[in-house]
Write a protein that binds this DNA or RNA. Structure first.
Lengths: 118, 118
DNA sequence: CAAACATATGATCATCTGTTCATATGTAAT
DNA sequence: ATTACATATGAACAGATGATCATATGTTTG
């Protein structure tokens, strides 16, 4: 790797700004968690599941049928969504209903939609 | 794969809701684009770059130094961010400054942070 | 308790992703 | 023009990811 010190010290930005940025950065753990959260949104299947749950809570087999995918695939993804605390579930007899856990989900997806619609 | 029709028709949800959900779903292309957008946020390096740019526009080598990563790695990721229209850049002599393109970036990351802080 | 059903889970495999390394491009200065 | 510097890019490789398949778990009903 080559040296890059010259660039930064001479003309790119003021050292105070570099210092300030370092102080303002969230800690590594928060950044990691944040990236993990967005990874969960970064998959078409999971996004579609979330959209389905916007309308109403729903059981696994309904989601699978709506999205035309296998029960197993949906179940695996619901697990990911649950771990990220984006959905919750409740049992009623044999069937398990999933629902949106949080209103951040709507906001985040809404902002994302606004961005791509530009 | 086993049959799942019985479940849904009998007790899971009302058919009207299933119909309604299908109508409310954005089209495939929008869902794909949305997932692609969130994928961009779903990486620690890119999140860190965005946080750095919150404070001030900055050149590639500064970002590389701040994040303690190679110039090449940063350049590759800036390319991804640019394609997603999350950052823009301008040339000034030899150096190229990158900056946040959009205020959705702050909102989306802000909401993400709120979510994980719970 | 045995059978049927709804869901969960572990292993596997093909595909995607991010970093590195080497090198190319573009700009400025001598 | 030649050299130095800032950035970009392509190939390659290791690690992560998502669907599938087979099977396990947990619940209800006869």
């Amino acid at each position: 790797m080559q040296e890059r010190i010259e660039c930064c010290e001479e003309h790119c930005v003021h050292p105070e700004i570099l210092e300030h940025v370092k102080l303002e950065m969230p800690d590594e753990e928060a950044l990691y968690d944040l990236a993990e959260l967005f990874k969960v949104f970064g998959d078409t299947t999971r996004i579609r599941i979330l959209y389905v749950l916007f309308e109403s809570e729903m059981c696994v087999c309904d989601i699978a049928e709506l999205l035309n995918m296998s029960q197993s695939a949906i179940s695996h993804q619901l697990r990911v969504l649950k771990q990220a605390k984006l959905v919750g579930n409740r049992r009623e007899g044999k069937t398990i209903y999933y629902f949106l856990a949080d209103d951040h989900v709507r906001t985040i997806i809404g902002q994302g939609m606004e961005h791509i619609e530009e």
